[in-house]
Nucleic acid binder design. Structure first.
Length: 511
RNA sequence: GGUCUCGUGGCCGAGUGGCUAGGCGGCGGUCUGCAAAACCGUAUACAGCGGUUCGAAUCCGCUCGAGACCUCCA
């Protein structure tokens, strides 16, 4: 594969040239959602980040197997007074089967990811469907002597592990510090050392999610599923493991240790971590109570939201920041993203329309004044293309890609106004660039059209025609009345040089 | 408290030892019956104080400020 893709590897803390283990195949595992609640803006970030990675690797020609799990057992609600399995807790609250909760929120997650134009992963395994694999992995670790059983629970022996391995190498922690700084928590007395972590937990009587195992009726420790499922579907060693920075420690650190012992080798070549979305400078998270649900963004129904924001606005907003930077939420920022996206898509629409002009045997009418041959700026489009690829290859720098696209938009508009010109070749190159980068890689879609019925379109054509007649007769009363009444109905008329167009005001709905 | 990260113009956000990031907003303009929309142009920045350097927003130190993580707990 010919490319210069460099990826920031959390493990080495530097950018490395991407070289997969078994070209042209790439294995990528990303920590997916815990399906005990509705997806919020924070969920959109890793999904979109690794969607970008997935799409770009495919674009480069790799055959990518993308595994993103669904956590439906084991994760805990740390903020609850009494720690309890998140899913079991929710189930009891709503008096339904745990699997019903899991199904409901999985479906919701899929629904919203689809709206965000996030591709489905190649495999989406559930933790509850891989209990056998997890038990098998625990057995291997026990056999290797790096775990111990205590009252029906199994714990990983971090102290022993760190004698021969570097526990903490991913997150940059030292075992001594970890032990010294561990908070005193209840129920830790089973562990030989507070740094140890659970591989299997015995279920308490009230616990409704449980599976039989050689040690007790219980459930797997929360770090184990990713190791077990990653190994199962991607092999003992695979290329990329991704997830949010909040999972770096302990989750991914524990994964490294488990897999190292169970499989005898390093599991992951490149560790990628997306940063958090912040709100008023603080991490947005369900447990912090400051998360805005995706549904609320799309409906505008939230006290913090001045209006509704479309899925593509959210996607564009996220792609406008580099994935390793924090991204701060605000209405002002989102509205800026909304308008910027609109400008980008309008430019792309113009560019697309040239295709007709170029491909058609008939010359377009006077509204398409372009592509006079010129040699002055022959390499300009080529430079733009190179810049886009250079940015993508520089650790998926989507904000710089977008900045380059806006330069393309500027050129498109200048050509439209007759201030600049492009050769036919350049037009084709530019069209190809936008198609590839905007549609395939960034996966931004035009949301402005296609939602109205044909009847509405025809009616609007009629109304605009009538208004045009009134204007021709300088009957401004009638003309303005039509415009104002339509506006009350949420339809905005836009007069341009080449006649009027219209659009619905959905993007301006306020609560 | 420990470990780490960050501090860029009104807002969001790239980049980086000397070369315009970009978007939104503002301002000016084009268009327009008016308005809106659209388009064009444009100003404002690198938390503070020292140091290294021919040159630092970019490297080093300190100060101030902000943030993340610090474990299974039932």
């Amino acid at each position: 594969m010919e490319h210069n893709l460099t990826i920031y590897n959390t493990l080495t803390r530097k950018k490395e040239l991407f070289k997969p283990l078994n070209e042209p195949f790439v294995g990528m595992y990303v920590c997916g959602p815990t399906v005990y609640g509705d997806p919020h803006l924070g969920h959109a970030r890793p999904a979109i980040t690794f969607d970008l990675v997935f799409r770009y690797l495919k674009h480069l020609g790799y055959n990518v197997r993308y595994v993103r799990n669904i956590t439906d057992v084991g994760h805990l609600e740390l903020d609850l007074d009494e720690g309890e399995d998140k899913i079991a807790k929710k189930a009891r609250l709503e008096e339904v089967e745990p699997m019903e909760v899991v199904q409901f929120y999985s479906d919701r997650y899929h629904h919203f990811m689809a709206l965000l134009n996030v591709l489905q992963p190649s495999i989406e395994p559930r933790a509850s469907g891989h209990i056998i694999e997890q038990i098998g992995m625990i057995q291997k670790i026990l056999n290797a002597g790096f775990a111990y059983v205590q009252n029906g629970s199994v714990y990983f022996d971090v102290v022993k592990y760190s004698q021969s391995h570097n526990y903490g190498k991913l997150s940059g922690r030292k075992l001594e510090d970890l032990i010294a700084n561990t908070r005193e928590l209840e129920g830790q007395e089973e562990k030989r050392n507070p740094a140890d972590f659970a591989l299997w937990k015995k279920a308490q009587p009230e616990h409704i999610m449980r599976w039989p195992s050689p040690w007790s009726d219980g459930f797997p420790g929360w770090h184990l599923e990713c190791s077990a499922m990653g190994t199962k579907y991607l092999g003992d060693t695979f290329d990329i493991h991704g997830g949010g920075m909040d999972l770096l420690f302990p989750h991914h650190e524990c994964e490294i240790a488990q897999s190292r012992i169970a499989n005898g080798k390093e599991a992951v070549k490149y560790w990628l971590h997306n940063n958090m979305i912040t709100i008023n400078g603080q991490k947005m998270g369900k447990s912090l109570g400051n998360a805005v649900m995706l549904e609320e963004f799309f409906s505008g129904n939230h006290p913090l939201l001045e209006k509704a924001y479309s899925p593509m606005t959210i996607r564009f907003f996220i792609l406008q920041a580099h994935y390793r930077s924090t991204l701060d939420f605000s209405n002002e920022a989102l509205q800026g993203a909304e308008k910027g996206l609109k400008r980008l898509m309008a430019g792309m629409e113009t560019l697309k329309s040239w295709q007709l002009a170029v491909g058609s045997t008939q010359q377009k009418d006077t509204t398409a004044p372009l592509h006079h041959c010129t040699t002055a700026h022959g390499s300009r489009i080529q430079d733009l293309i190179s810049s886009c690829y250079a940015a993508m290859n520089d650790d998926f720098n989507s904000p710089v890609v977008i900045a380059n696209l806006f330069e393309g938009v500027r050129i498109i508009n200048a050509v439209t106004e007759g201030k600049e010109s492009l050769t036919s070749d350049e037009v084709i190159q530019l069209q190809h660039l936008f198609q590839t980068v905007v549609t395939e890689i960034l996966a931004l879609q035009d949301e402005s059209s296609g939602e109205q019925s044909e009847t509405v379109d025809r009616l609007m054509e009629l109304i605009i025609g009538l208004r045009q007649d009134a204007r021709a007769k300088k009957d401004w009363n009638a003309s303005d009345r039509i415009r104002d009444e339509l506006e009350k109905l949420g339809i905005v008329i836009k007069d341009t040089k080449n006649g009027a167009t219209w659009e619905t005001k959905q993007s301006q709905i306020t609560r």
